[in-house]
Simulated scan of single mutants.
Amino acid sequence: MNLKSTLRTSLKIVIPLVFGGLLLWLIYRNMDIKAIWEVIRRGVRYEVIAFSLLFGLLANVFRGLRWSLLIDSLKAPHSKTRAVVAVLGTYAVNLVLPRMGEVWRCGVVTKYDKIPFTKLFGTLLIDRISDVVVVGLITFILFFSNLSFFTNFSERNPELLDSFQSIFTSLWVYVCLLIVIAAVWFVFKYMSNFSLVRKAKNMLKNVWLGVKSIWLLEDKPKFLVQTLIIWVCYFMYFYVTFYAFDFTRDLGFHKGLIAFTMSSIAVAIPVQGGIGPWHFMVISTLVLFNVAETDAAAFAAVVHTIQTAWTGLCGLAAILILPLIKNNDKIQE
């Protein structure tokens, strides 16, 4: 690895980490750290949080099974076990390089099962789009059934609303988008004889084949059931932790769902483990539910730290056992 690529990789790690760390510092800098530490020491039922970890692992296992189902639709023999283990390893990679875990898992399956990377990447897009649709639907339903909460949230955090609005109201955003679309059209229309353009076309065709995996699925109900299980488990992964603290245990299912949705939105920001954005969204939400700010901060610190460490450890274990999975393990359903 040359100096330039080393520097580029280092920046990919450091910049998101610095951003998350800075946001974390801004969130906690004016809080009573001693009061937060007292909650962490004496006010947490850690056995309850330990129980919640099982739901996180189960959700990621089913994510791996769902991805394997998409790969099945490509008629490509592969190891279902490896697909699950690769998905678990994704989260460990993402803790170092945000969003690179998805690329890594496609690369792993390509290496061992000899399936074209671009086709796998197409299935990965469907995998992620499915999750965006689920979070979007939940957010949409909660938004219109809890307008007062979202109104209060935007009033307390006007800078978030302003930033979001600026993306859609800025003329430059649309100008740049049109320029990119025009440039791509021109290249593929008038430069199709260039070998690089032909390779790009072939790559996009393979990606599209992977994307079409959702239509080629022979058992679509199973895909939907697995998606439902994944998100029920993710919710339980978060909600069970409410019972580890006296100040959240009585908030109830509905408020738990709102807090879970806000935390899920935060995870979309490309920062290692959602460090910073996750804390901000969860603390801000709990405060609106009349939880003291120091208590909310302690909740976020404990839950995020333990669950992130758990995800990382499971991912690291998965990476270590990947070479031990036999290549002839072709478990198909």
Rank of each mutant, 00 (worst) to 15 (best):
M1Y: 08
K4W: 05
K4E: 13
S5D: 14
L7F: 11
R8E: 06
S10P: 01
I13S: 00
I13D: 01
I13H: 04
I13N: 02
L23S: 06
I27T: 14
N30G: 08
D32Q: 12
I36G: 01
W37P: 00
I40Q: 06
Y46N: 12
E47G: 05
V48Q: 04
L53W: 02
F55Q: 08
L58G: 09
N60A: 01
R66E: 08
R66V: 03
I71C: 03
L74I: 13
K75C: 05
A76D: 09
K80V: 04
K80M: 12
T81Q: 09
T81P: 00
R82T: 01
A83M: 04
V84P: 00
V85M: 00
V85D: 00
V87N: 09
G89E: 00
A92D: 00
N94C: 03
L95M: 14
L97T: 10
R99V: 01
M100P: 01
T110L: 05
Y112N: 11
I115S: 09
P116N: 13
K119V: 05
K119I: 04
T123G: 08
S130F: 05
D131H: 11
V134Y: 15
V134G: 05
V135M: 14
V135H: 08
G136P: 03
L137M: 12
L137Q: 07
T139R: 07
S145Y: 11
S145I: 11
S145C: 07
L147G: 11
F149G: 05
F149R: 10
F150M: 10
T151Q: 15
N152Y: 08
N152H: 11
N152G: 14
S154Y: 04
S163A: 14
S163T: 11
S163Y: 07
F164A: 15
S166V: 05
I167L: 14
L171W: 10
Y174V: 06
C176R: 13
C176L: 15
A182M: 12
V184K: 10
V184E: 11
K189T: 15
Y190E: 07
K201H: 12
W208P: 01
W208L: 13
S213I: 09
I214T: 13
W215G: 06
L216E: 13
L217H: 09
K220D: 07
K220V: 14
V225D: 12
I230S: 01
C233I: 06
Y234A: 01
F238L: 07
T248K: 07
R249E: 13
R249L: 04
D250F: 13
T261F: 05
M262N: 12
I265E: 07
A266E: 09
V267S: 03
A268F: 14
P270V: 06
P270A: 11
V271Q: 01
G276E: 09
W278E: 02
F280D: 03
V282I: 11
I283Y: 11
I283L: 10
L286N: 04
T294D: 15
T294K: 05
D295N: 11
D295C: 02
A298I: 08
A300R: 10
V303W: 06
I306V: 11
I306H: 00
I321H: 00
K326I: 01
N327C: 02
N328V: 03
N328E: 15
Q332A: 13
E333Q: 10
